[in-house]
Amino acid sequence: MPRYVSLYSLFLRQRLKILMEYRVNFFIGAVSTLIEQTAGLLTVWVVMQRIPLLNGWTYEELLLVYGLLALSKSLTYLFADNLWTVGREYIRTGGFDRFLVRPVDPLFHLLADRFDHQGLGHLIIGGILVSTASARLGITWDLPHLLYLVVAVLSGGLIFIGLNLITCVSAFWIMDSVPVTRVVFDMNEFAKYPLSMYNRGVQFVLTWLVPYGFASFYPANYLLGRDVGVLVWLGPAVAVTLLLIGYRLWLFGLRHYASTGS
């Protein structure tokens, strides 16, 4: 474990060195996601100029939901971006074989191989949203709340990573898993808004099947002192479950790869 931590920090340092070499690109990459995110935010802003409450939520409360999701999402961009392109960039090119002849875990190696700076845009926007919204909403960041926020964001991030891991395994069969990952990933858009806005079917899906709700809506409820029962505490358990399922599937995919080589 310490070995992996030090290896990861080495990979990260080298990656940052490369990114810094292309400073302009680094800046554009980080800012571009900011602009992309802003489009959605402007929509909420425009609408909330016209109406006081959306499904019983104020503008600031909506921003909190939005910000929590952006923070969680930034983690998958920053630390697990290669799950998107494992098929395209590694399996198809044969580069994946390199991981298999090195004395490290191939999944670790895959993830460590790329830290994606575009996630910084999400991180920044999420940070700004959560801090300004909470200030205006009068949320006090005492230790329990702060701890809850950290755990919630981490769980949210791991939910994103777990779902991407599950879908990326398809790359061992279809070479390029981006279409599969994209469809599941895009369902996170539902969680930009309070889940209570949707009908029961959608709520069920976003809670139990593609549980992005735990990355935004449920923790927001807790922070705002609203009551949705036990669900506000389930994030970590859901995240761990998804990761376990994802890892099992990953191993299954690896076994398939070992017998077919493609």
Partner: peptide
């Protein structure tokens, strides 16, 4: 500029809003 991916994402994001794809311009200030 070589970071064409970032630039196209930025253009895409801006277009979403500026074209009225997400909100009709009539609702905007």
């Amino acid at each position: 500029v070589t970071e064409i991916w970032g630039l196209s994402v930025a253009r895409y994001g801006f277009t979403l809003f500026a074209s009225g794809l997400l909100v009709p311009l009539a609702l905007m200030p």
